[in-house]
Each structure stands twice: as structure tokens, then as C-alpha cells.
Computed example of a mutant assay.
Amino acid sequence: MTSYSTMDSPLGVLLLVADGQGRLSHVLAPNTKGQVSSPDPDWIEDPAPFAEAVAQLTAYFEGELKEFDLPLAPVGSEFRQRVWDALDTIPYGATVTYGELTSAAGRPATSVRAVAGAVGANPLLIVRPCHRVLGANGALTGFAAGLDAKKLLLGLESRDQSLFN
């Protein structure tokens, strides 16, 4: 049984979704491209399974948490899972290019577009830090929740809110 809850954040109201075992499957910001935008009618609203996720996300937004420790259950192909796992290796406050992430995921350099597609399909925004991935020249490119959200998250992690304005 899928459950969901919401929480306020600097990005707006986040939609949190968990599988029947209480593992987080989605963290979505408002207007996230290509992802669920509202709860499915079959889902059960229940904040209980999300208490730890809300606590950790709140601590992250307050600058007190740098690494999430939550049970996760994102659904995706083996390739996407490998790319999403590689996202977990990007340290708080750091950034990598899509090319560097491609290498970290153990993929050939010719796979950069496919890796970028997997990053764009990441259902666990913030928790799996796809916002830390930049274009080859260090430019802010693509983020399912929008570039303003990406700027906000990178600024929060750098503690320099003007860095990406």
C-alpha cells in the first residue's frame, strides 16, 4: 500500500511517497517535470511513515544535515539505479559534471546523454542530490524542479545565497 504526506520547504510543498514497507520512493517539489505531481487516489495519506524523512529534510534545509540516512525504494531500471547510486557519492557542497557522474556510474563517456536522462528521472529530489550535477562547463543545466530550485539548493549548501544568482 502506497502512502504519502506533504511538508513545507523552501522549494514549496514537497510530496513524499513511500511504498508499503515505509521506504521512501519519491520526494517531489512543486511542478517537478516528468514525475508524479499529486497523490494518486489509491494512495493513503499518512504522515507517520514520514516522520524521519521530514525530520531529516528539515535539518537539511536548516543547514544541520549533510547526508541523508533513510530507507529508499525508488523504482527504475538497473541502469537508472546505478546512476542514482552514483548521485549518493557526491559530497554535500560539492558539484560534478555529467561527464564525471557518467564515469562514477561506471559508464562509457558516450553514455552522458543517457546518464543525464537518468538524473532527470530521479524520483528522490534533494535526498539523492541530482542538484549537484552541472553541465560540462560548470553551467547550471537541467533540474526537474527548475533552475531556481537548483540555485536555491546549491546556495544553501554553499552558504552563499548569491553564488548562483
Rank of each mutant, 00 (worst) to 15 (best):
I44K: 13
I44R: 12
E45G: 03
D46Y: 08
A48H: 15
A48I: 12
F50T: 11
E52K: 14
Q56T: 03
Q56L: 04
L57Q: 01
L57W: 00
T58F: 02
A59W: 00
A59L: 02
Y60K: 02
Y60M: 00
F61I: 00
F61W: 07
E62T: 04
G63V: 06
G63W: 06
G63C: 07
E64K: 15
L65E: 02
K66R: 14
E67W: 11
A73E: 05
P74L: 01
P74V: 02
V75W: 00
G76L: 03
S77G: 08
E78Y: 05
E78P: 05
F79I: 06
Q81R: 15
Q81L: 15
V83E: 07
W84P: 06
L87V: 11
D88Q: 13
T89K: 14
P91W: 04
G93K: 10
A94D: 13
T95K: 13
V96M: 13
T97V: 03
T97F: 01
Y98K: 09
E100D: 11
E100W: 04
T102P: 02
A105W: 00
R107I: 00
T110I: 00
V112M: 01
R113S: 05
A114K: 13
A114V: 08
V115G: 01
A116L: 01
G117T: 01
V119A: 01
V119G: 00
G120M: 07
N122V: 06
L125Y: 04
V127Q: 07
C130W: 01
H131N: 08
R132E: 04
R132L: 05
R132S: 04
L134G: 00
A136R: 14
L140H: 11
L140K: 12
T141D: 03
F143I: 12
A144I: 10
A145N: 07
D148W: 06
A149V: 04
K150H: 13
L153V: 12
L154V: 10
L154N: 09
G155C: 07
G155T: 09
L156S: 10
L156G: 08
L156P: 10
R159F: 12
D160W: 12
S162N: 15
